[in-house]
Amino acid sequence: MLQITCPCCGPRDEPEFRWGGEVPLVRPGPPEQVSDEAWAEYLFTRDNPKGFVRERWLHALGCRQWFVVVRSTVTHEIRATTRLTDTLPEALT
């Protein structure tokens, strides 16, 4: 069970959160200009790197805010958590 530091609420246990996948994820549009390939890429393709990844999490049982977590997919080490609106130092990703 991970312990994740919500930018609003501080450290909380994983069951309070919901995982939302890698970011940034750019939604292509408008729909009539998006190729099948580009849309499939958006729906299905993720980098899934070994190492640190930027992903968004929701503090579902707390402040209900989505935020960004930099987490290692190998060790689960969490290097940083920031609000969606904050820019993350490049060094962290």
């Binding site: 919901r18 939302g20 939604r27 968004r56 929701l58 579902a60 209900r64 805010q65 989505w66 969606l84 609106t85």
Partner: peptide, 13 residues
């Protein structure tokens, strides 16, 4: 409800 908040916060702030 959670879906509404997700779209508003993450895609259409």
């Amino acid at each position: 409800f959670a879906g509404f908040e997700e779209w508003l916060q993450c895609e259409w702030p």
